[in-house]
């Protein structure tokens, strides 16, 4: 019941309901995409799937969920203008050294930020740019016939597959970092992605 209090009080949530809903659509989609994607690259039984067919199905369902939720999130960002909170600005870049000093345990003073710190902003923006790259390369691999123009641009399916893999590796690294910081930095803020409020 305590979590309803802020709503009753009329406090503005840290994460609006739609953002939270979408987060919980694309987060599992990205995770499933990473896991099934790595299995598809190196289909060894130790990687969690019994056969390629199920990994492919997982990958393709994840693909559709990701595309839809990503587009919706972009739409939301555009209308609510919350991309202003996500995209790193000049001040963020200027404050980056101070932030890094703290995160690398060189300084004890924790800098204060309005919503996201520069690290978060860079990480979210990175993911925001990688996901469309994954969607485009992935779709071209998924439908190489109808999207042959994209294949021509990439110089063939081989290079396309390479870029999809490399971008996948980058998404994995950023997602792992995101999950780590989310779980360890401030459990209050972690809560807010579930409830909306700190």
């Amino acid at each position: 019941m305590r979590s309803l209090l802020p709503i009753i009080k009329g406090k503005k949530p840290r994460h609006p309901l739609l953002a939270r809903l979408l987060h919980w659509v694309y987060a599992p989609a990205v995770l499933a995409g990473i896991l099934s994607g790595f299995y598809l690259t190196r289909p060894f039984p130790s990687q969690g799937f019994s056969k390629v067919e199920s990994a492919q199905k997982t990958h393709f369902v994840a693909q559709y969920l990701l595309i839809c939720s990503y587009l919706a999130r972009i739409y939301q960002a555009y209308f609510t203008k919350d991309y202003q909170e996500i995209l790193p600005g000049f001040n963020d870049m200027a404050g980056l050294p101070r932030f890094l000093q703290y995160e690398l345990f060189l300084s004890q003073k924790k800098p204060k930020y309005k919503k996201y710190n520069p690290g978060q902003k860079i990480l979210f923006t990175g993911l925001g740019l990688l996901i469309p790259l994954q969607i485009i390369t992935g779709l071209a691999l998924y439908k190489p016939n109808s999207l042959q123009k994209t294949v021509v641009l990439a110089g063939g399916l081989g290079p396309l597959r390479k870029w999809h893999y490399l971008a996948g590796v980058a998404v994995f690294a950023l997602s792992a970092g995101h999950i780590y910081f989310a779980c360890t930095h401030d459990p209050n803020k972690l809560k807010s992605i579930f409830t909306g409020y700190e």
Binding site: R42, V169, F172, G177, Y180
Partner: peptide
């Protein structure tokens, strides 16, 4: 090789998180 890029990135990620966790 592409495999090495994957392995190195994974190792760097695990190492980075591990070191930061230990520091924290």
């Amino acid at each position: 090789t592409a495999d090495r890029v994957g392995a190195l990135t994974a190792a760097a990620t695990v190492l980075g998180i591990g070191v930061h966790l230990a520091g924290s």
